[in-house]
Each structure stands twice: as C-alpha cells, then as structure tokens.
Design a protein around this nucleic acid. Structure first.
Lengths: 201, 201
DNA sequence: ACCTGAACACCGTTCAAGT
DNA sequence: ACCTGAACACCGTTCAAGT
C-alpha cells in the first residue's frame, strides 16, 4: 500500500500511522534492527525529530508496531482454532500451524516482534498485554486438553513445550538457519506432525 | 577472566584474541547487537581502527567469535551423546538436552550465535562449516534412528523437528519470552520430556 | 499542539600517515 | 606488518525556536 503524496500541510494528519507503517516496512529485511528513527521519519515525509511528538523514543515506536503485530497474531490464532470446534487436541495442532503460518505470511511483523532487535515486551503496557493474551489463549487450550486448571504447573510446562515447538520451527525457518530448502507446505506439515506427536499431553 | 594491564607496547601481541574476547563480553546482554567495533577496540586497549588489521569489517569479527562458539557447541553436543552409547533414541534426547544446557551455560556465546544481530552463517566459510558440522552430527543420529540414509527427506524433516524443539526452548528461555519463571532443572526436564514424546521418529 | 533545525555524543568505515 | 588520527556519512536524542 503506497502512501499518498500530498501537498504536505504543516500538520501531517496521521503521522503516527505513517510512522508505524514505515517501521514495519523497514523491519522487512533484518527485523527491528533495520529500523531507524530518522529513516522512518523520512519515509513519512517529516523531519527527524517529529516522531518524538508521538513516541518517547525509538523503543516505544518499535513496541507500538510490535503490539499491532501481536494483535494480528492473536486474531490469526483465534481464526485458526475456529475449525477444530471444541476438541482441545485438534485446537493445539491448529493453533501451532496458525502460528507458523503467521510467521510465513506476515514475515515483517514476525521479525519485528521476535527477530533481531525486537523490543522487550516490558517497553510498553500495550505490548505486554497483547503478548499475555496470546499466552492465555494457548494456555487455556492446553489446560482443557489436560483437564487441569491453567494455573497448574503441569499445564504451564506443557504449554511451553507446544509453544517452543511452533516458535522454534518459525524462527529457524525465518532466520534461514535451515541449511536445506523446505517449502511452505512441507513446513506446515512438519509442524502438524511434530505437534501431533506430542499428543496426548 | 580479566585481561592484564600491560605497559602496552606498540604491537599488541595478540590483538585478534583480545578482540574476540571483547566481542563475546559485549554480547552478554543483548547479543551481537550490543557489540561495537569501537568499544571492542577500547576494551583491547587499542585504537578504533586497529581491528581492521584482523577483520575486514564488523560482521567478520562477529562471525569469527560466533565460529568459536559453534565449535564449543559442537563439542558440548558430542560430549552429551557420549553417555548414551550407541542407542540413537537415547542420543537424540541427550543431544537435545545438551543443546539447551549449552544455551543456559554459555549464554553469551549462544546469544552471539543466534540472538539479536547475530552474523549470517554465510559471512565466513569457517562459521558456515562449523554450523554444518553441528547439522551433520544431529542428522546422522536421526538417520540411524530412522534406519534411513541421511540424504533421505524423511530424515531431514525429522531432524528439523528435533532441532526446532530444542532451539525453540533455548530461544524462548533466553529471550525471556517466558512469562512465567522456570528453573534450569525444570527446563532440561521439559526438554527431555518433549523430545522423548517425539520418539520413535 | 505540532513540527523544524542545529547541536551533541555516538557509530562503521576509509585513508593518509607514522613506527 | 601493525597501529594511529582525522575525516565522512550515518545514528538517537535534546533543546531552543518557529507556526
């Protein structure tokens, strides 16, 4: 989506939006590490210090963009489990596949959220909260699969195993640590298979 | 290990060594992203441009340090499987646990190798080769477990699942994406359990 | 309220020069 | 061979100032 080339009034109109778009754009290759406050300002057609009107510093700008990505991830995961109505084990496979698929489909956001230079979740309450929502969604399914309360240590451990599996696949795929080629379909199939092998928890 | 405060002759003696030590030191917190050529030179007690005598650029310095870490990892993995003499499945559990343990014990190296700003394996032939050796070690075990040749796609897929699992656990643990606390022993136990659940491949 | 421009202390890298 | 010092084009961030 290319941004309009307006006659450029003194007030930008929606600078915050433009800066967040620029942030995601710049994160495409290297992740948050490739994002520069000055370059984002340039893309938004604004002076180098204008971003400070909207964010206290670079970390907050990154965190705001990562938060948007986290909300997108949450929605993708929720949509993913919709197919497996009710059955927790089917939901676990579906949510894991959705996680890896999100990493492949929204690479720029995923890199921004988890790649090089990504902001710590503690930077912003909003980012932390969005991360917690994803966490809770997964934990809830695991708990139902185990028929234990979410607070149970066993549930947390099991959740961690599933998450680590999906996250590990996504990260290795994105960072090209995979020394052999593997297509999208094969990757999703591998995810399905790997998670299924963990069941029943 | 604190470096000696010598009378500082014109020629450093072992600048390359000192720079690599400084690199690992600086990577402790944030990973390679926290490494600065100038700061490494300062730690080595040398001018800002002296590192260019030993490395073509910053990436090569990072890659050289990462390569040393990769060799350490390889040795740790080899030592890890020594206990499970011969049995491939026991070796798979052992190598995965050794992988996660390395991440916890040699955090600075692991962050440097896989964390924020880590050098691409393609930067240096040495780093690429060291990475490949780790890859081959794991692939060999998986192939023996499956009783298939290492070149078989099924072996590669299975290897990828095991690696992703161990890597995912290590990464989540280090990046503190874990929103709950979990001790070292529990983490290694979770690794053991998660890998064992994948067996037989 | 919102944005600019100069300034400061940092980078990585280059290049001529010193021993 | 090995190292220095000045220089260049970049950063993030601050601060006084403009509209």
């Amino acid at each position: 989506m290319p941004r309009r080339q307006q006659p450029k009034p003194y007030h930008h109109g929606n600078l915050r939006r433009a800066l967040l778009d620029a942030t995601v754009e710049l994160a495409a290759d290297v992740g948050a590490a490739g994002v520069t406050l000055r370059e984002a300002a340039r893309l938004a057609g604004v002076s180098q210090t204008a971003p400070y009107r909207h964010f206290n510093d670079k970390q907050e700008m990154l965190a705001a963009a990562a938060e948007e990505g986290m909300v997108l991830l949450l929605e993708a995961l929720q949509a993913g489990i919709r197919g497996a109505k009710g059955d927790p084990d089917a939901e676990l496979v579906a949510i894991s596949v959705a996680y890896v698929r999100f990493a492949l489909d929204h690479t720029r956001y995923f890199r921004l959220m988890f790649g090089h230079g990504s902001p710590h979740k503690s930077v912003t309450p909003g980012l932390q909260q969005a991360g917690r929502a994803v966490f809770q969604l997964l934990l809830g399914i695991v708990a139902r699969s185990l028929k234990k309360p979410p607070a149970d240590p066993a549930a947390r451990q099991a959740m961690f195993r599933i998450w680590a599996l999906a996250h590990g696949i996504a990260v290795l795929a994105l960072e090209k640590q995979i020394l052999f080629d593997i297509g999208t379909d094969a990757l999703l199939a591998a995810t399905r298979q790997a998670v299924a092998a963990q069941l029943p928890l």
